[in-house]
Simulated scan of single mutants.
Amino acid sequence: MGNYVQLLSARVNLIASADTWIEGDAIAQLQNTAKLPGMHYVSGMPDLHPGRGYPVGAAFFSTEYIYPALIGGDIGCGMALWQTNLDTRKVSHSKLDKKIGNIDGPLCDEAQGEEWQALIASQLPAEIGFRPALGTIGGGNHFAELQCFDEIHDVEAFAALGLNKAQLQLLVHSGSRGLGQHILRQHIDQHGHQGLLADSNECRAYLAEHDQAVRFAEVNRLLIAQRILAKLGTDGAQILDVNHNLVLPAQMHGQPGWIHRKGATPADQGAVVIPGSRGDYSYLVQPMASDLSLQSLAHGAGRKWMRSECKGRLSSRYTVAQLSRTKLGSQVICADRVLIYEEAPEAYKPASNIIATLVGAGLVNVIARLKPVLTYKTRGECCE
């Protein structure tokens, strides 16, 4: 592990190398969270950055209590990777852009609307609201990105996943949309930021809603992928789907309790994708599950700048049109003139540093590297 794990205290560590940029505020939030009642272990990932009271890019292990406020409003946020049947060598940005068109609106706008509504009915209880948001990406750092493999590091693991370098890949990053935020607001109104006793009726009620939101997020990613595949006139196969924001029963360091992930990828569910910014590479990795990192990994490159800083820092250097093309030659569809600055590659850490740190810490083996081709954020009608 070398110098890739920093022990901040007996119960708090940070997976970071000497050249991994981490804000002091994020480390302070990490240490403060460790002081919550029942909190036993806290692990910050190399993409750690400050959040609203709690750090993003971390995992937390508690006993006796769970903390809904720590999970936040985007319950079930995560990523799904699909392999399309499109030949990477035969696609162009302009054709992909035109075919995808606008997917900000509700599913009923599509020809497959009735088919998808039947799928929703089979997957989600009838009482779950926020259905018009299903199949839509949302704001913030959510996206759908067509990618191609440009480097294969582990040929055997790559083949075992059924992957083909010649086929275009689709990475979908989204969550439970307004449903998760609604659940969080209800909890905060009743309990503030206090934890819930794990054996209480209040905790059981929250977990029931939480689990529905996680399922909502998974169905949402499925529908986004199906929607894009239908627009492109092709089929695809789901390779993986993981959640970054949730709470689960778990055993860590020989002790039963609860694992909270706030912007952290599970390391105990097989291969995962750790994405860079929209102008950087993403990495398909095989986790080496470890209680050291609370069975968790970085979930992306991690923010370097606060959203409120981005336009001021970049508007004198780049126009919106310039930010729509990346240094890797990919295209970004984002008609929101504020969001495209907030999500500029410069606002994020280099993905290569995040991956090198995880490799150095003995937490992952790299299977392959993915290069962005076209990223869909919004045509300007994105809703929260």
Rank of each mutant, 00 (worst) to 15 (best):
L184P: 14
Q31G: 04
D25Q: 14
D87S: 15
G192Y: 11
L107D: 11
T63Y: 07
E115G: 11
Q322H: 05
E110C: 15
V359Y: 00
E64K: 02
E342M: 02
L86C: 10
E202L: 01
A301S: 13
T88N: 10
L70G: 00
R325Y: 12
T136Y: 07
Q238V: 12
V272H: 00
A264D: 02
G76R: 14
G138S: 06
V219Q: 06
A237W: 07
G162T: 01
T357H: 05
H210Q: 08
C148D: 12
K304D: 03
S282V: 06
I27S: 01
S308D: 08
C77A: 01
I333Q: 04
I15Y: 02
G135P: 15
A28F: 14
G263I: 10
A301I: 07
Y283T: 02
F158M: 11
R261Y: 06
L163W: 03
I228Q: 08
S176Q: 14
A205D: 14
G329N: 13
H142N: 13
E384T: 09
H299D: 09
S315T: 06
R325C: 12
A10V: 12
H173S: 04
G270R: 02
D336M: 14
C108A: 15
L374Q: 04
K90N: 15
V373D: 08
N220Q: 13
K311L: 03
L314M: 00
R303K: 09
C382G: 07
I15E: 03
N141Q: 10
L222Y: 06
H260K: 05
V373P: 06
D189M: 13
N13R: 03
G140S: 06
E110Q: 15
F143M: 13
I152F: 09
H253P: 03
I152W: 11
L163G: 02
A301D: 09
P372W: 10
I152T: 12
H193G: 11
I188H: 08
S43Y: 06
W258P: 00
E110P: 14
L163Y: 02
K377T: 10
I340R: 01
H93G: 10
D189F: 07
A144F: 15
H187I: 08
A26N: 04
I100K: 01
K99G: 01
Y283L: 04
K327P: 00
I183L: 07
S352V: 15
M252D: 00
V332N: 08
G195N: 02
K99V: 00
V373K: 05
I100V: 05
V273G: 01
T234E: 07
Y206L: 01
V12C: 04
L8E: 05
Q269N: 13
D74R: 07
I224A: 01
A58E: 08
V5F: 02
A237E: 13
T326M: 11
Q251H: 11
P372K: 08
N85H: 13
A157L: 06
G129D: 11
D336C: 09
L240N: 02
E145F: 08
P132M: 11
A208S: 14
P256E: 13
A351L: 13
Y65I: 03
W258Y: 15
Y318W: 07
C334V: 10
S308L: 05
Y65N: 05
R307L: 04
A166I: 13
G254R: 04
E342A: 00
G78E: 11
G312I: 07
P132H: 05
S94P: 00
H49I: 10
E343M: 00
G380V: 05
Y341A: 00
Q212R: 14
M1F: 09
S176F: 14
G329R: 10
G57N: 06
